[in-house]
Write a protein that binds this DNA or RNA. Structure first.
Lengths: 341, 341
DNA sequence: AAAAATATTTTACGCGCGTAAAGTATTTGT
DNA sequence: ACAAATACTTTACGCGCGTAAAATATTTTT
């Protein structure tokens, strides 16, 4: 390994006994050269440890091998996990993913999209802020760069949207809760940043009416991405003023539920399905921490893996010129029964 | 805005009435040109919306404006938060940060470092995997790229290390716990991936001995970065076999503590400092979720902000040619009293 | 074995910008 | 107003690679 230092592709091509254009072709797609040529290059690659200059590579090429991954809030482990999964799939497919977080900030989201343009990515996987997004900016970006949206839907934008069947989540939860106890109230933020929240509310209402119950929604104030704190403060207020009409609460998402559990603890309200418990609480998402709340949180699990797989596959298909048939793909959730409800 | 489309710096220079080399100089450092020239360029910038091609920019420059940020495990919100803070500081200083997570995997950490080399970054901020790292790879990397290590120390490598004064963390916690109740046992992983864990154990032992108590350590099995589950399983085992010699437990970190709280809940052991509670549990880190455990977790807070600030400042100083005087900078933790202990 | 199909080599140009050198204009100090 | 200092312009080259076209070599087909 590493006899002399190889300065550029010209030198490396000479050392491996292959012409530079063919070596260039190899690096763009190893399968595009004859097997005998490929192995000669790969032998040389082991001896000389040469790597093409990515700046020179990308400068004169319309399409790079870069993939942008944008999530709205990386401090939420849900997004960290799905980003990780997407990242890995990109690497496996021979692309170079770069991860960005908007940190709940519209200006930052716009900056990221701007920066992404000059990266000339082959494609982008975008989970937008939602309500906090600048629609015009996203629309314009998607007009220039092949983009698959995930988790957070933005109407009529991008190649496709991949997410969860949110109404089904709520319906599944309502169905279970009604079967095993009192029908649930719905606990949510008044102005949710994420469009999924609205679909979940609708699913809740629909399911309740279908089962002959009156929906009862508790909307709490609060802005931003500190859902736990919003859930905690709203939960305390709701408990104190007796806003919960039944002993069962379905939360719009797990992080809100985690806050509500903290509120219940503070107010000495026992949560769970044991006879000595006062209320039942369920969430939605199967957040990585939900297993470790006290009591462990009953929830509806998002199919992380299917979402990430389908999002990446759809993007690559589009990048390689295949028209996707379905614009929207939604995955169902699975009930995860734990002891909180 | 955007009359015609500007193809390159040549065109943009012509449109703004300034020579291309001067425009180039402006983009490398706006302060390096006369104020009158600067404003002419900035006026044109508003009308024509031109951005230099980053690939062409970086190709022919020894040092780019790129900064690499590497954390061991992004699904841990602690790292997500500190990465966010570092990222923002880099942007504010006019650099282009790129975030990477090793996801607890040595091979991936090495791949990231390899990929980072070809990014030709001005500098890198690296929180290594720790025990899971390939020391030779890190050493070699730090030999080639200015690197500031943070959170996880690797001996004799990099420009500097910035982290927490881990022994002080444990000593602070021990001191508080002894003052307010029984002396604590120490709950930790047998083979911690992070070197901080060892320092915390040492701090615990030292503090206990200083106060005239015998240290008592409960080490639990488990590998990887799923600390909550390791804490839960180890906690159940320890509770069942009566390994805790006192009613107070200091955990090596908050995530382990969160797992232990789940174990206590499962075993119907009440945690807190009320008279009707059986044990007290404290953590270390002030993890973003620790506020929302039941009961809320008493812990020692890392000074995120100081660590991120000092790490970034040290790196930039080194990049700009200033020798740092101190190789190691450790920040003290602050006790955060909540109801778990 | 010859012909057809496919891979590779040669040659050559250009991408968009960094950067150096030498000359010209502008600002600053006196 | 003049000289000195500074900023800018002109000119020119090169970075490392993508890519196109034409010539040549190799493999596959018949």
């Amino acid at each position: 390994m590493e006899d002399p230092k190889v300065r550029n592709m010209e030198e490396f091509a000479a050392l491996s006994g292959i012409s530079r254009p063919t070596v260039s072709k190899y690096f763009n797609d190893p399968e595009s050269v004859r097997a005998s040529t490929r192995s000669r290059i790969e032998d040389a690659l082991k001896r000389y440890d040469y790597r093409p200059n990515i700046y020179a590579m990308n400068q004169n090429r319309k399409l790079t091998k870069n993939i942008g991954i944008v999530v709205p809030y990386l401090a939420d482990p849900f997004f960290a996990e799905i980003a990780r999964s997407i990242e890995q799939r990109c690497i496996d497919a021979g692309y170079r993913p770069t991860l960005f977080s908007s940190h709940g900030d519209q200006a930052l989201e716009n900056d990221i999209l701007e920066g992404l343009r000059s990266l000339k990515p082959a494609g982008v996987l975008l989970a937008a802020l939602g309500r906090g997004s600048d629609r015009a900016a996203i629309e314009s970006f998607c007009g220039d760069v092949p983009t698959v949206l995930f988790d957070s839907h933005v109407q009529d934008v991008g190649i496709a949207f991949v997410g969860s069947d949110n109404p089904q989540f709520s319906m599944l939860a309502v169905d279970y809760l009604c079967r095993t106890g009192e029908p649930p109230c719905f606990f949510e933020m008044k102005n949710p940043s994420n469009p999924n929240a609205n679909k979940r509310r609708q699913g809740y209402c629909e399911a309740m009416e279908k089962l002959g119950h009156t929906p009862h929604i508790v909307s709490v104030e609060g802005d931003g991405w500190g859902f736990e704190e919003i859930g905690r403060l709203g939960g305390i207020a709701a408990l104190e003023s007796g806003q919960f009409s039944t002993n069962t609460i379905l939360c719009s998402n797990d992080r809100l539920a985690i806050g509500l559990l903290a509120a219940c603890f503070e107010k000495r309200v026992r949560v769970g399905r044991d006879p000595d418990c006062a209320i039942r609480v369920a969430g939605q998402d199967d957040h990585p921490f939900s297993r470790y709340t006290c009591p462990p949180l009953t929830t509806v699990a998002q199919d992380y893996d299917a979402i990430s797989r389908h999002a990446v596959e759809t993007l690559f298909a589009a990048v390689e010129g295949v028209q996707s048939t379905e614009k929207t793909k939604l995955f169902e959730g699975k009930l995860v029964m734990r002891s909180s409800a």
